[in-house]
């Protein structure tokens, strides 16, 4: 089993374990706890100047989320976040013709954290935070080159939730993430940033 396969298997196991939590809690008779699922998209502004210089189109990160309400206002959150960015190479000290080659970058972050509603009304402030493990793959097709890496970081969110009936919630959050990544040929680069994220949640169990 390769390292990547093992890592994927672990992630899948963690996800399944998290998804099964309500079944166990239901069996132990703890009413009021709910599993919910959500999805959202963000407009991201990377904090790294290098990232911004190479990837002028950092893309719209998409996030899928599973949540488990463990208290009246407290949620445990597990989410996966995908980002596809497009950019072009840079020439720091040009001495010849201007060269530019297209680049692709995919980032996947697995986030684990907690969220807290600051009120019981239909509209309530909401804050969340936690840790994330992220993986990236940068591709340079003209050079037939590719770089992979990973890094551990944190995230924090703040905004509000709007209850839409008994099942749905609309979320509008300011998202901050710190995602330091180290490549073979470079130092550490932060792939995180500040973004505005809009999403919807649905209670499913």
């Amino acid at each position: 089993m390769t390292r990547t396969t093992r890592r994927r298997a672990l992630l899948l196991a963690a996800f399944l374990a998290f998804a099964c939590l309500p079944c166990f809690t239901a069996a132990s008779g703890t009413p009021g706890r709910r599993l919910f699922a959500g999805a959202g998209a963000a407009f991201l502004n990377p904090l790294s100047a290098d990232f911004r210089r190479v990837y002028d189109r950092p893309g719209w990160p998409l996030e899928a989320q599973l949540g488990w309400r463990i208290g009246p206002r407290l949620d445990l959150l597990l989410s996966g976040r995908w980002q596809l960015a497009r950019g072009e190479t840079v020439v720091p000290d040009p001495v010849g013709p201007r060269e530019s080659y297209p680049l692709r970058m995919r980032v996947f972050a697995l986030r684990l954290g907690a969220g807290f509603r600051l009120g019981d009304g239909a509209v309530a402030p909401y804050v969340a935070g936690g840790f994330q493990q992220a993986w990236f793959r940068e591709r340079w097709p003209d050079a037939e080159a590719e770089e992979n890496g990973s890094g551990f970081g944190v995230f924090a969110q703040g905004g509000c939730s709007l209850r839409l009936g008994r099942v749905f919630q609309l979320m509008a959050l300011l998202d901050y993430s710190y995602a330091p990544m180290k490549g073979d040929e470079t130092g550490t680069i932060d792939l995180g940033g500040v973004g505005l994220q809009i999403g919807i949640r649905a209670a499913i169990l």
Partner: peptide, 17 residues
């Protein structure tokens, strides 16, 4: 001959003219 660096975010290459 002149060489210039061409960089992606995580990769480095150089071109020689």
């Amino acid at each position: 001959a002149r060489s210039q660096a061409v960089n992606s975010l995580f990769m480095r290459r150089k071109s020689v003219y």
